[in-house]
Amino acid sequence: MEKETIKSIVESHEGSKGGLISILEDIQKKYGYLSENSLRTVSKETGSSLVDIYGIATFYGSFSLKPRGKHLVSACLGTACHVRGGPRIAAEFESALGVCAGETTEDKEFTLETVNCLGACALGPIIVVDGHYFSKVKISDVKRIIKKTKTGLDKVSGDKDDNVVPLEVSCSHCNHSFMDHQCHIDGHPSIRVTVSFGQKHGWLRLSSLYGSFAVESEYEIPMDMEINFFCPHCHSELNSPSPCVLCGASMVPMIVRSGGMVQICSRRGCKGHMLDLDGVNF
């Protein structure tokens, strides 16, 4: 199964010079990490040697060779956070989660990483969990942050309608949340992403209700226009090579907080979307 998928990803990049990074990005987007087998398959399919592929996969920080957890905890160790005790906070997270920085807990819930600056130095020490910033964190806050993450950082009372459910989605690359709590659509926090089409580049807010097609955008998007989606946090392109079953445009996968994936069609006006939730009871 995995082999077939990787084969099709490689084929979609056929002929493009230097497509190796794009291939690896697509695999990472699909599986969340690069497994040994997937790298071997890529090597076989592209004809590049495993050494080169492994070299690239280990060189770039955006590639992970280990499965990532559901929640990404970033502890800032930049200069300002460092002098305010960032390393002690990071160490407290390490002991609370039982992992070292860069590792994932055994239950695949948390991945802990250290970063060098998050650009909010005045608020240090900073901890970011799935795109939620916690400022001036004290050692005593660590347990609370973990507990809060487990219960859901942005708890929204779920709609009881079976066809319309609010989703909390995050980037399939960096796992940062797309949820915008400042701006509500359909009475729920909206999903904010960056889009570009033609010469335009701006934000797009989607309704987080699955089944609702309400959108707001910085620029008017013409109907039937195929647009490129980007993560506002890591700026990586979200469009995947898999085509929409309705119109053939590329689909945009996003990670659903409670588990699974949601895919929406990148064409304005197309109602193609797919929801693949695993282990969620409605």
Partner: peptide, 8 residues
């Protein structure tokens, strides 16, 4: 091509 550079 058995060995190569890894990491950075």
């Amino acid at each position: 091509k058995a060995i190569g550079f890894r990491g950075r």
